[in-house]
Structures are given as C-alpha cells and as structure tokens.
Design a protein around this nucleic acid. Sequence first.
DNA 1: GCCATGCCGATCATTATCGCACATCATATC
DNA 2: GATATGATGTGCGATAATGATCGGCATGGC
Lengths: 301, 301
Amino acid sequence: MIGMADWDDLRYVLETVRHAGLSGAARALKVNHATVSRRIAAAERAMGARLFDRAPGGYRPTDAGLEAARAAERMESVSHDLSRSLSARDQQLSGALTITAPQLIVERVLAPILRDFKQQYPAIELKMIAANRQLNLAAHEADVAFRISDTPGDTLVGRRVTEQSAGVYVGKEQAARLRADPKLPLDWIRFAHWPGPPEVLKEAWPDRRITLTVDDMYAALAAVRANMGATRIPCFLGDSEPDMERLARVPLLPYRPIWVLTHADLRNTRKVTTFTEFAATRINGLRPLFEGRNPSLALSL
Amino acid sequence: MIGMADWDDLRYVLETVRHAGLSGAARALKVNHATVSRRIAAAERAMGARLFDRAPGGYRPTDAGLEAARAAERMESVSHDLSRSLSARDQQLSGALTITAPQLIVERVLAPILRDFKQQYPAIELKMIAANRQLNLAAHEADVAFRISDTPGDTLVGRRVTEQSAGVYVGKEQAARLRADPKLPLDWIRFAHWPGPPEVLKEAWPDRRITLTVDDMYAALAAVRANMGATRIPCFLGDSEPDMERLARVPLLPYRPIWVLTHADLRNTRKVTTFTEFAATRINGLRPLFEGRNPSLALSL
DNA sequence: GCCATGCCGATCATTATCGCACATCATATC
DNA sequence: GATATGATGTGCGATAATGATCGGCATGGC
C-alpha cells in the first residue's frame, strides 16, 4: 500500500490548513503544537510529498497540502454523518443529550426548564453549552440548539417556540430623574454592529445622546442597571430585572423569535423530540412574557 | 463535539468487520490483536454505542458497527483517492514506483527488464510485488500491474503488450519414452478449476490418463520436469525450460494475452508512462517467444 | 528603538500505547 | 472423551508518542 498510514494525521493537516499554522491547529485539536508538527511530518513522510511551506509566521499549504485538506474535509464530513447517524439510532431515553443556547436564554429561561427535564428523565445526561457562538449542528457539536433569529438556516429543522417583543428599558433611578425633569435628554446605550435607536423613539424622546457603546447584552444590562441610560432589550430580559423598567411613552418593538432547532438526521429520535416538546411546551407557557404582554410572569422565573 | 475522537479507530473497526474477528483484523493491520481490541473499545466509548457482539469464535458487528464500517469504507475510498491523486501530481522520475505481476512473469520475464530499467532510472525506487493475487490498483496497492487476461477489467487503463500462445509440453525423458513406444497412453497433468485437455489433443493422442491435478503453474512445471506427464503451458515458460519440450504432433494453442495496466488517475504521470513504455518495448521484442514462434529466444532471458 | 506578543523548532521528562507472553474458552477432529 | 487448533482477554515491561519548557525569530505597537 502506498499512502496514508494513519487517517488521523489528516485531521492535523486539515486543522493546520484551516488555522494557517501549528499553534492554531494545536489549540483546535487540544494538543501541544509539537504534536501537530510531528504528525504533519509523519503525514508528509507517508504521502511522500511536502504539504506545507514553512513560512515565517505560519504554515502555508502547498498544492498537495490543499488536496490532502480537501480529502480530510470529506472524511470529516463522513465522520460527522456517522456521528449523527449513530445518535439517531439510539432511541433510548438515556445517554448524552447536548443542548446549546445563547447565554442569556440559558440563564434566564432554560435553567429551570432543564432542571425539571432532568428530574423527569434522570437517565438522560444533559450537557448545556451556553455560547453566543452558533455551534455547528451538522458537525454534531450539539444535538439541539436554541436560536434567536428570523431565519434559522435552511439545513436545520425545528420550530418557532415563541415570538418576541422588545422594549426600551431604563434603570429605576434614571427613570425617576426623567420623570422629575421631562426636559432631560435621553442617554442611549448603543449596540455595536446594530442600527441606532428605533424610529418610534424619536417622537417621544427627540433629544438623545449616546453615552456608551456595547457589543454584548450582558454589558448592556449592566449599563442600564447602573443608570447609564436606556436601550432596546427583549422583554423577557427587561421585565425580569427588578432594577429597571420600561421607558415611558415608548411602545413595544418587534424582536426576533426564538427557535428550537435540530439536524434533520436527529429530528425523529426519541430523546430529541422528547426534549424539544418539553422545552417548547414550557416556553409556550411563558409566551406573554416573551411578547411583553405580562411582565409579572418574569417573577416566576 | 459528540463522536469520533480518532479517525484511525475506524480503520480498526472496518478491518474487524471485514475479517469478522480481532485476529484477522490484527493480521491485516500488522498489529497485535490486543491493540485491535483496545482500539475498538476506544471507538465504542467515543461513539457511545456497542459496535460488535463478542460471539464465541469471532466478533459480529452490530447494526451500529455495520454503519461505522460503511463510514470507514467511504473514508478509505477518500484516502485511496488522495493517495493516487498525490502520486499523479508527482512528475519526477524519482521516488517510489510499485509494480505487481504474476510470480512467473516476474521470474522469467520481468527480472532483467526491471534490472535494466533501474540502471537507466536509478532515482526511481522500484518495488515489485510478485503475487498471483490480483492487487487492487484502485486501493493503490500498486501503481502498475501486469495481468494475463482477456478482459483486464473496466476500471483500469493500459494496453496489451503481447499476444500469447501455449503449447503442450512434456519432460525430455518422457518424450523419449513416447517416441520409443507410440502406443503409450499420454499422462496428463490437469489444472484444477480448469477445463480438461484441449480438444486438438484428442486427434494426436486419443489415449490419455490424468496423473496429477495441480492448482499452480509452478507445481505443473515441476511435475512436467519430473516426467510425470504433459500439460498446457504458455510458450514463454515451456520454451525456456531446458528439461522439457513441446509434445509431438500438437499445434500451438491460443492463450490469454499479457496486459500492462494502471489506474486512470496515474495514466499520465511521467514515472508510470516511462515505465510502461520501457517494459512494453522490451516485451514487444520478445513477441516471438510469447507467441511460440521462436523458442530460441527463451535462451536469451 | 524597545518591548510585548505570537509562532515555530528543539530538547527532555512523562505518559500512554503497544507487543509479548500466558491464561482461558470454544470448536473441530480423531 | 482427549487433544489440537485458533480465537479472545489480561498483566507487565519496552517503546513510542506526547506535553512542558526554553530559545530564536519574526511582527506590530508605543
């Protein structure tokens, strides 16, 4: 046989191409960079071809390296297919079930739901990945994902578990100051990579100034809580914060709905459907909260 | 990530499925059977599924195991594609070149040709696999194959390097006995899995008896040399044996031609075309020998 | 111009993996 | 029923792979 000795070496080649270097690949593979270097050397020996140009500041793949990486990608996709397919085969209500959701959804909404699910199905080992990064369900990084989105992608299947509304919220103290002196300008907390304040705000609060730019909802919440200003926040969050309230004279704003999604391969597995049904039912019970129609529900969270 | 930790484990699963047991897989992979056992255990742990039923006398794959093996087959095919593709990229007249041919072709025909090729292209590291088994060129077990066949398979490309004829040969001593007493019956050496003596033999030698059945050309040659009888042998072999001669009053018989073949991916690589041209030219010079038209050529081998 | 940062190569101690040898079990054969 | 054969499981020592660390060399910011 002429060729690969160890298929796993191709993973090292692939990650090194993807990260254009040993260090990045090493981090992705959770190994020491020396190991990546050795495995690549082994692959080059086995295939009898240079796969990378050792350039200063990184590895640049040769044509042969790119070809090897393409093959590795195909193998990776086979491996992912297998992984999902084996999961789909497992129709027991036991074993691992990996969920991912945006951090705030986990903290404010999912935590009690997961607790109750675990109580009802103790044999299922829940793993929760709270991340703002969108995990790759095709790569089987998770079985189920919660997403806040209008268009949750065409490769996944799932359903809207609820519509959402947002409001403009402001710290209690700040709200009191604004009530005392309606002439005060409105301090606005801007989201980076986001259009400015909503149009409807201009009518009630024509005079505004930006006090802070944030790129993260946690930072925005903290800033509002610290009375630095007002900003647009989904109702389920704003209404569950005791230190803030809706800004006067501002209507509810539309917000992206919440989806629960899974890969098509897993849509009919018992574990996944059991979980998604359970979570969807519970979240459905909170619809008024998400749609901003019943702030008091927030207390029950 | 849920799934495979080490792609190479899938090779172990695949070979274990193919050989229906640890021992066979271990031989195929050239490792200890304990290693196969451990890698399979690791794969089962990683995938969270039993892949084999440990049955007495072997491993029987579960459904999940079969599915893993199917995935492994796809990965294997990707690996083979890559291997050939990287070889095809190499247009140097150096590095490895693996040839396979039936043992007798190697011994009687190819040996001097390879010697001269090596002398002319010393940078090419020739590897010769003399095997009666037909190696899998798609799996890149070799770059070039010599085959004796009417139909060398549709997936490979190549050319007939020569037609062949066969003769009926008999040991010199036996031949003398037959000449002395034309009434003697003809001892015939039969090939297993092969039709009996050729029809044309009946005219000249109506009285025959089978003395031995063999399944291998080497065994047949030895038997003829030991004067156990006559049999059908390709001319290039029979005419190069000093201890045997063609049986009187028997015409030449048709025989399957010799092909030199390669995988389509490799057909345009310099190393492969250089070699096949070289070998084809040399073998073409021996055409009279292969076609039984000039027995004296055999001496020059 | 200097320092900080990140990347790669090399060396060495540590760890994990593998092969070997032996035990066990099942099957086939006489 | 006894023996031989071939297969899998297990413990231990040798070996090969890995991780940690340091040094050299670039690049980019102050």
